[in-house]
Simulated assay, not measured.
Amino acid sequence: MGNKGQSKGILVLVLAGICALMLLSGFRSAEPAGRSGVQSTVASAGAGELQESLALLTTLGGQASAPGAPLRLVLKWQGEYSGAASAEAAVQSLATRLGLGEMSSADDEGHRAWRSGAQLSGGTQISLFWSELGGGRSYCIVTLETADLLSSPELPDAAADAGRAMLQSGIAAEWNASLQAPAKEQGGTQAALLATERLLNAQFPGIQAEESYADVSTSSHSYSVPGLQRTVSSGSHSLALQLAVHKNVNADENRITLGMPLITIEY
């Protein structure tokens, strides 16, 4: 987002709500916990899809970013838990599966919430946030982040492992990924957006811009993309990819952000 004021906050809330409507194959179609054979098959399919998507994002990011620029990546797994175990027992079990250390707990707007985090060997940061919703339900977000994906070869496998851990904990989680870097194209954000869009057209025949957003420092398009299965429903559209270009006025530099299926970080 990068834009200031009320429109930024509204857009964040819209994106967060849309992410809850993701239409998924892979982990989303998981069977209830206990059917380990089905879970193993589903997890393998979901992990393959995730790693293919991360490889695609890396390729697109390398083409659209300034030469040699680091590719920041933020990947989020999120989903709801409503199993038989208590929230405290379930979150501790998930933290153990993720290899995280001590959990911190606090009251978050009337609901108990837990947090934990760690750094993997290659520099990837992994964090867990778990919040009770009431009625025996909880919401969980596992985030993996690296300042440069090209220097963090462990992230794709770690991301797949995190999805499997959530599935084993009874959470049919959904993932989204956002990649960010200084843009190859400078000048006005709209011109840079259209120049970058030409790269997408070459990569994805039939790609179609369905939604757009613009302000004085940001231009963004969200696309339907034939062949990409991971989508978000927005009105009558199934969106699979979002591109944003934001002008950092202090550095006089354009920054690109690519999201699959949508961007869920500040751009």
Rank of each mutant, 00 (worst) to 15 (best):
N3C: 11
N3Q: 05
Q6M: 13
G9Y: 14
L13W: 11
L13R: 15
M22H: 10
G26C: 00
S29R: 15
E31S: 15
G34Q: 15
S36A: 08
S36G: 00
G37E: 10
Q39E: 11
A43V: 10
E49C: 00
E49N: 02
L50C: 01
Q51S: 13
L54H: 04
T58A: 15
T59E: 09
T59M: 01
T59Y: 00
G62C: 01
A64K: 03
S65F: 09
A69Y: 04
P70N: 04
P70T: 03
K76N: 13
E80C: 04
G83D: 11
A84T: 13
A85S: 15
V91E: 08
V91T: 12
V91Y: 01
L94K: 05
A95N: 07
L98N: 05
S104A: 15
A106M: 14
A106N: 13
Q119V: 14
G122E: 11
G123L: 15
W130M: 01
S131N: 06
L133D: 11
P156Y: 07
A160P: 08
D161G: 15
Q168E: 14
A173D: 06
E174S: 10
A177M: 03
A177V: 07
A183I: 07
Q190H: 03
A195N: 12
F204G: 01
A209G: 09
E210A: 13
D215C: 06
T218G: 07
V225T: 09
P226K: 03
Q229P: 00
V232S: 15
S233C: 07
S233L: 13
S238M: 08
L239K: 04
L241R: 00
H246P: 01
K247E: 02
D252C: 08
N254V: 03
M260S: 08
